[in-house]
Design a protein around this nucleic acid. Sequence first.
DNA 1: GTTTAATTGCAACTTTGTTGCATTATTTGT
DNA 2: ACAAATAATGCAACAAAGTTGCAATTAAAC
Lengths: 143, 143
Amino acid sequence: MTSDKKLKDILHQYGLKGTTARIIVLDVLVQSQVALSHADILSRIHGEDLDKVTLYRTLSSFVSVGLAHKVANEDRNWLYALLLQNNRRVGIDDHAHFICDQCERIYCLPMDAEDTISVPVMDNGFVIRSHEYRLHGTCPECN
Amino acid sequence: MTSDKKLKDILHQYGLKGTTARIIVLDVLVQSQVALSHADILSRIHGEDLDKVTLYRTLSSFVSVGLAHKVANEDRNWLYALLLQNNRRVGIDDHAHFICDQCERIYCLPMDAEDTISVPVMDNGFVIRSHEYRLHGTCPECN
DNA sequence: GTTTAATTGCAACTTTGTTGCATTATTTGT
DNA sequence: ACAAATAATGCAACAAAGTTGCAATTAAAC
């Protein structure tokens, strides 16, 4: 449990108002090691009730200011994860997504700049500006 | 336009009945250089009308026998593309997906087995079995 | 504290895709 | 070429995830 003041500070750093809804949602995301769906987040909020639309909008605001990013899971629902790794910003291209085919959890894995693929198509008129690497298999929990 | 007989043969090779719906849909997919949505395919069928459910089921049958594969676009709709490159089978891991951020077309780009990323997580209990590389940028049509 | 602008909650709605079931078409064997 | 068995089709109704509009509320700045 991170203190509300600390969470509010993070929101302010990203130019967002420190509303109770956002503090609740940020707290859930900070706690999680995996990307979470709208439903996941709702189920992790016990006492406080939060309108579903507010949650959708809260998550959108996190993404639009770069505090979080979203990944589609295999069912094509959006999952959300912070772009923070022990309080430091993480670039969206600096990690891969690991999808566990057994438990369906999605992990954001750090990846160095050197870990890139060489794609033999640059000379065909395709200009690559960013990427998403989606790795499938089984996660530590399932092995 | 590929001959109906040829298309029917392909369907039979994959253990599918050569129905008119499947021949129509396969013809559209053979023609296309990019992955197509349900709506894309419907709009490319002029005279013949095809029930929307039949189209969904036709596409599912193509995927389940390995004749086609599906990719989610940025709006998380399914796009379909054949796993054939000039009449030869293509493995699902043997290519990357190029998403044009301007026209939103998705291309399947061939990729050699050597073109892999080295992900520094194998020793953490993550076992990788397959992958999807999604490359973003602008395509030849948009440059 | 007041003001102002952003955020919230509610209801209604949209879009994409799915399910059940009766009808029709394709294949196989003769 | 024809009949029987089986799979595919079309229609209607439905499901799930997410969005939009709008009035009420709340956070931040002064």
